[in-house]
C-alpha cells in the first residue's frame, strides 16, 4: 500500500506540490489526472527519487517503509517502478544486458539468487512475444533509435520482467497510436493482482478505457481537488478541467 500524506515539493524556489494526500491500497489501480503544469510528473519523480525533486514536507510510505529517505535503487528494490514519460536512451548499453543487470540487482537486493543468461533470455523472449516486440529489440541499445511506441513498449517489457509491486506510469499514453496503446494497456493489465498496484498519471481519459482504474484523482495546482470512481474520468472528458477547478474554488 502506498500512503502519501501532506506531500510538498519545490523545484528551485517554485512550489509544485502543495500538500498531497493519497492512499493506493495493494491490488488497486489509481489514476491521477490533471492539466499541464499541475505537478503530475513531479509527483512521479518525487516518489521515485530523482535528484532535484526532493520533498520539502509530508510523508510517503510503501508497505510501511519510508520512501523519501532512501536512494532510487532502494525504492526499486522495495518494488517501485517509474515508467518514464520520455524513456531515456542509453547508447552503448545493450537492452538485454540492461534488463538482466536490473533484474539481478533487484534479486540481489532482495537476497534472491541471480538469474543466469539462458534463464533470462527465455523469460525475456516470452514477455516480448506477449508485447508483440521483435526479438532484435533485445540486441539493440536501450531505446536508441526506438520509435515513441517502441520506447513505451520497452518500458512495459521492463515492468513485465522486473515485476514491480507499485508501478507509476507517467503519461505512458503520450505519443502512442491506438494499437500501441492497447498493447501497453494489456501489458499493465497482465500484472494486475492482489500484490500489484499502480498509479496511472495521465492527461487524457483515453488510456483509462484500457486500464480501468479503481479510483480517479484530479490534481490541479499541486493539490488533489477531487477523487472518485472511474466515472470521474468521463466527467472530466465531457467538461474539461476548467469547470472542475471553478467548482472546487
Amino acid at each position: 500500500m502506498l500512503e502519501i500524506k501532506g506531500l510538498e515539493a519545490s523545484i528551485g524556489d517554485k512550489q509544485i506540490l502543495r500538500g498531497i494526500d493519497l492512499v493506493v491500497p495493494s491490488g488497486e489501480v489509481h489514476a491521477v489526472m490533471g492539466p499541464n503544469g499541475a505537478g503530475k510528473s513531479t509527483l512521479g519523480y518525487v516518489l521515485s527519487g530523482r535528484a532535484g525533486y526532493e520533498a520539502t514536507a509530508g510523508l510517503a510510505t510503501f508497505n510501511g517503509a519510508d520512501l523519501l529517505d532512501i536512494e532510487p535503487e532502494e525504492r526499486a528494490a522495495l518494488g517501485l517502478f517509474l515508467a518514464f514519460q520520455y524513456p531515456v536512451e542509453l547508447p552503448g548499453v545493450g537492452n538485454a544486458n540492461f534488463l538482466r543487470t536490473a533484474l539481478n540487482a533487484l534479486r540481489r537486493a532482495r537476497g534472491e539468487a541471480e538469474m543466469d543468461a539462458p534463464g533470462f533470455l527465455k523469460l525475456a523472449r516470452a514477455e516480448m512475444k506477449r508485447l508483440s516486440m521483435p526479438d532484435d529489440m533485445l540486441k539493440r541499445n536501450v531505446n536508441v533509435g526506438f520509435s515513441g511506441g517502441e520506447k513505451k513498449r520497452n518500458e512495459v517489457l521492463q515492468m513485465a520482467i522486473l515485476r514491480p509491486k507499485l508501478a507509476i506510469l507517467d503519461e505512458t499514453d503520450s505519443g502512442l497510436d491506438i494499437d500501441a496503446l492497447r498493447i501497453v494497456a494489456d501489458g499493465v493489465n497482465a500484472l494486475r493482482g492482489p500484490d500489484f498496484s499502480a498509479l496511472v498519471i495521465t492527461h487524457y481519459q483515453r488510456l483509462l478505457e484500457y486500464i480501468v482504474p479503481d479510483r480517479v484523482h484530479v490534481l490541479v495546482s499541486g493539490r488533489i481537488i477531487r477523487s472518485g470512481g472511474p466515472e470521474l474520468a468521463l466527467e472530466l472528458e465531457a467538461n474539461g478541467y476548467a469547470g472542475m477547478v471553478a467548482d472546487a474554488a
Partner: peptide
C-alpha cells in the same frame, strides 16, 4: 544525470 537516474530507478546501484 538522466541516464544515471534511469538505471538507478530500475534498481541498479549507483556505482554499478
Amino acid at each position: 544525470a538522466e541516464q544515471l537516474f534511469y538505471l538507478r530507478s530500475r534498481g541498479v546501484p549507483e556505482a554499478e
